[in-house]
Every structure is written in C-alpha cells, then in structure tokens.
C-alpha cells in the first residue's frame, strides 16, 4: 500500500493557489465597488462656505473616503462569505483539513487585502485626474507619492491593515454564525454596546485614537486582525463539513 504524505505547508500552498484562482470573481466586485465609490466622491466629501470681503468662498474637499468606506464593506462581506457553507463544502472536495482550510483562507484574505488596500490608495489619483476635467475651479492638490513617498507608503500600509482587520472581523463573524446562528444576535449586541458603553469606548479609544503615529495604529490593526483570525481558528476546530 502506498500512502501519499502531504505536509501541512504543501496543502496550504496548493489551496492558496486554488482559492486565489477560484475567487478571482471577488476582484471584479472590488473594482465595481471602487468605481462606484469614485463616482460618488466626485462632488466632494465635505465642504465649507465662507464670506470674506463680500466674496463667497466655497471649499470642497475631494477625497477617496467614500471608496474606503465601500471597500471596507466589501472586505467585511468577503471575509464573511468565504466561511459560508457553499465555500466550505467546495474546499473539502479536495485534500484539506480544518487547519489547512483556515490557514489558506487567511492567506487569501491577506493577499486580497493587499490588493484592495493598494488599489484603494491609488484610486484617489483617478480623482485627481478626472475631477479637473469637468469643471474649472481652482484646485489645491495634496502631496502625491512622488512628493512624499514615505508617508504615501505609510498610508498605503494603513489601508491594507484596515482592510485586513475588517475582513478578519468578517471572517470571525462568519465562522461563529456558521457554528451557531445565535451568534448573529450576540454580535449585533456587541456591535451596539461597544460604542455606547464606557468600557467599549475605552477599548475603541485605545485601538483607534491615542496613537503616536500611523505606524502604531497599523500595528494595532494587524494585531486585532491576528486576534480575530486566531479566535476563528480556535472556534472552528471541531467544525464538521457536508453535514
């Protein structure tokens, strides 16, 4: 009798290749979401009017914030959807076990987050190009990647960290709901209580405010993502498939 012995690393790598290939469709949805966000950003995200010496000034900030919000929702959805029954059963049609399935999902989410983060960061350059074409108002451009590469890379990294954290949240959410539907209510309660109670506010403040630099914030994002992923792995260890 000949038994093939696959190491965990080999299986995870094979699955990552397979999943990136199989989930390419999600990148199309990402691009659609980004374009939608860009269209909605054209009119500016916030504005301020002022009067100075009988001259009216209107200052409009045009940012890619809407794109970021849209992509965040996309990331939450992505993390969630790959834990659903259909995706799970699909993965178990090939060689896998619970650990390799989780690890490959996580790696795929990291790859997708890097792609989504970088493209989302770059998407505001499209605004810089397109917006001046449609009206002739004076524009003050903020620094670009060429003016200040370091801070641009830091923002890009922050975007990746943010998207990764949100997709990890979606992944944990999906895993818990897959284990038992009742977790849905628990999570909704948690999401409502977090910003409305004192302890919740303290936690949120610790993570998202009180940061010396973008780098520290990003490290916190990644740490939260790791915590989410580890919790998802621990809770799904005894999970069955094709029930």
């Amino acid at each position: 009798m000949f038994l093939s012995n696959s190491t965990l690393g080999e299986v995870v790598w094979t699955q990552v290749k397979f999943k990136v290939n199989a989930y390419l469709g999600t990148l199309v949805s990402l691009i659609v979401v980004q374009i939608l966000g860009l269209i909605l950003s054209m009119n500016g995200t916030s504005s301020m009017s002022t009067n100075f010496n009988n001259t009216d000034f209107q200052i409009v900030w045009i940012t890619a914030d809407t794109v970021i919000i849209f992509v965040s929702i996309w990331a939450l959805f992505l993390g969630n959807v790959i834990t659903t029954k259909g995706y799970r059963n699909t993965n178990f049609s090939f060689v896998t076990n619970g650990i390799s399935n989780n690890l490959s999902n996580i790696i795929v989410l990291i790859i997708m987050s890097v792609f989504a983060g970088v493209t989302t960061f770059l998407s505001h350059y499209i605004l810089r190009l397109v917006v001046p074409l449609f009206n002739d108002v004076g524009y003050v451009k903020s620094g670009s990647i060429i003016d200040d590469p370091l801070s641009s890379i830091a923002s890009m990294g922050l975007m990746v960290g943010l998207i990764l954290m949100i997709s990890a949240g979606g992944y944990l959410w999906g895993t818990l709901v897959y284990i038992h539907r009742a977790y849905m209510f628990l999570l909704i309660v948690l999401i409502i209580t977090l910003p409305t109670t004192k302890t919740g506010q303290m936690i949120l403040q610790f993570i998202f405010a009180d940061n010396g630099s973008l780098f520290v914030l990003n490290v916190k994002f990644v740490c939260v993502a790791i915590i989410f992923f580890v919790l998802a792995m621990l809770s799904s260890y005894r999970l069955e498939v094709r029930r």
């Binding site: 038994l3 012995n5 696959s6 299986v11 199989a22 059963n89 060689v95």
Partner: peptide
C-alpha cells in the same frame, strides 16, 4: 481533521461541490 486521511481517501457523494468560477 486528519491531513493524511484526507490525502489518501475520497468520498464521492451528491454533496460534492466545486466553485462556480471553475
């Protein structure tokens, strides 16, 4: 949850599914 068993066995049933993108 055993990788060795998964690599050396297969269960063919009507619940087998494959991604729609392939």
């Amino acid at each position: 949850n055993n990788l060795r068993v998964s690599a050396n066995s297969i269960l063919v049933d009507d619940q087998m599914s494959f991604p729609d993108s392939l």
